[in-house]
Design a protein around this nucleic acid. Structure first.
Lengths: 255, 255
DNA sequence: TCATGATTATTATTTTTTGAGAATATTGAC
DNA sequence: GTCAATATTCTCAAAAAATAATAATCATGA
């Protein structure tokens, strides 16, 4: 491990479960001499990616907060998606959480969420949290629209064995219907309804979802929510398409 | 520019104002050959810190969202501070925003904020945004409690010249009173009330603030809000002190 | 005060990274 | 579909920088 991967390797050790590390611990975990790790940590601290914490230990630094804001302000998916999420929770007329998730690094990650004012629960999908790829409507919709090659590689690694064929069938069905509806696959008692937000040109594979109490919605409401999610997702995709094309044109002008 | 500073230099070019860069543009801005920048960008993309955007440009990547969540879940100031902010807006009984800011990289940055449900305005202090060091109650409280050496260096660089003495007097007053109250220094028409959250041992210099419409609060309310902010800040400091000591003890045990 | 551990500085050595240009892949226009 | 333009990766010798072992220094708590 050298160069950038050293920095990455160190940073990746700082997880919510192990939030504080001493240098000797980092050295042991990475298999790199302490003197080198000291230098690495010094660089990361100078950049704001780490900061000293209690007793010779370090934790993630405030630079991430700053970059995250930058992303919130500029990431097209987040910028275009947040008002859509707002509209969705307003029009849902049931306590619910709306959210936007995308493919990232072999898993699915929520990038924006909004809860209706009176929602008494929270979904496990929370901005920034990597989630499993093959469970929950949010993830399944994304999986269903991944490029074939990428998809094949993923289910190989997932080691589904005999379940792979059933999954393929399910995903083909999701592609055909244009949405996915599940219950209790992630959070017990909660149902998810998701629709795809795809921009093939931009390599964007995302999904828009509503999460609500499964017991709290009857068949009519469910149909209404599906319609709401599907139309919101396609509106968002259309909006993103325009932004993408505008950005492409702007780049050409500069060049 | 080489090593880690190369990565940092590239990343730091991605701001809210210039959110997308092509490699040739990055090469010119950093003064580094394109072939090297391509390699740098490839590493950053692999790490999720950048991602391809429209045309041949790149923007900040989702890794920051993930690390930011990690920080939200583990940074003691954020973890301990959020419930305090919630209590503050609940007990303010006026439309307001409560927030927590800290010293970072030569400026002041908000790390958590919460608005009362019916608040019709927003403060410029927003999670992740670097703010000026010498304007606004939030910043002044932090400045007033910075270690002397650090403080001197900062006002030297700020180039305040003849205003420096007046500032010193004002900050001494803030230290004596234990809070700072200003109006329209950042956002016209908005008043700020801030109190320090200091942990000398941990090197923590932060402040807790309320922002409200200046015209909307009379003298009695102002006194009440000052009391609220000051007591919330000292409660938070006390909480953090306990966490810090507990963390220190835990580290010793491991060692 | 001292002792202990954390951190930084110092080195020769080794390994990478670097950068110029060539080669290849992508993309958009026609 | 072809072609041209541009983006991106590859190659490789030179050069610079990172590495790691050790020593020196700095904090910190008893």
């Amino acid at each position: 491990m050298a160069g950038f991967s050293r920095f990455l390797g160190v940073l990746r050790l700082f997880t919510p479960d192990t939030a504080a590390w001493t240098v000797p611990a980092l050295a042991e975990a990475t298999g790199v001499p302490a003197s080198t790790v000291y230098r690495t940590v010094r660089d990361l601290v100078a950049g704001g990616f780490l900061e000293p914490a209690a007793e010779a230990s370090y934790r993630l630094g405030p630079a991430f907060i700053e970059f995250d804001r930058s992303l919130r302000l500029t990431d097209p998916l987040v910028v275009a998606g947040r008002p859509v999420l707002h509209d969705v929770v307003m029009q849902a007329h049931v306590p619910c959480v709306a959210m936007l998730a995308r493919f990232y690094n072999g898993s699915v990650m929520c990038v924006a969420d909004e809860a209706a004012a009176d929602t008494p629960f929270r979904s496990s999908y929370e901005r920034g949290r990597p989630m499993p790829l093959v469970r929950g409507s949010t993830s399944k919709v994304i999986l269903a629209h991944l490029p074939t090659r990428q998809f094949n590689k993923l289910i190989e690694n997932a080691g589904l064995d005999n379940k792979a064929e059933a999954l393929r069938t399910e995903l083909a069905d999701i592609r055909k219907r244009g949405f996915c509806s599940t219950a209790s696959e992630i959070d017990p008692g909660l149902a998810g309804i998701s629709a795809p937000v795809i921009l093939k040109d931009a390599g964007l594979v995302a999904s828009l979802s509503i999460v609500a109490h499964d017991a709290g919605i009857d068949e009519g409401q469910r149909r209404r929510l599906i319609l709401l999610v599907v139309s919101a997702a396609s509106l968002l995709a259309e909006d993103l398409r325009h932004r993408y094309e505008a950005a492409a044109k702007a780049t050409q002008k500069v060049a």
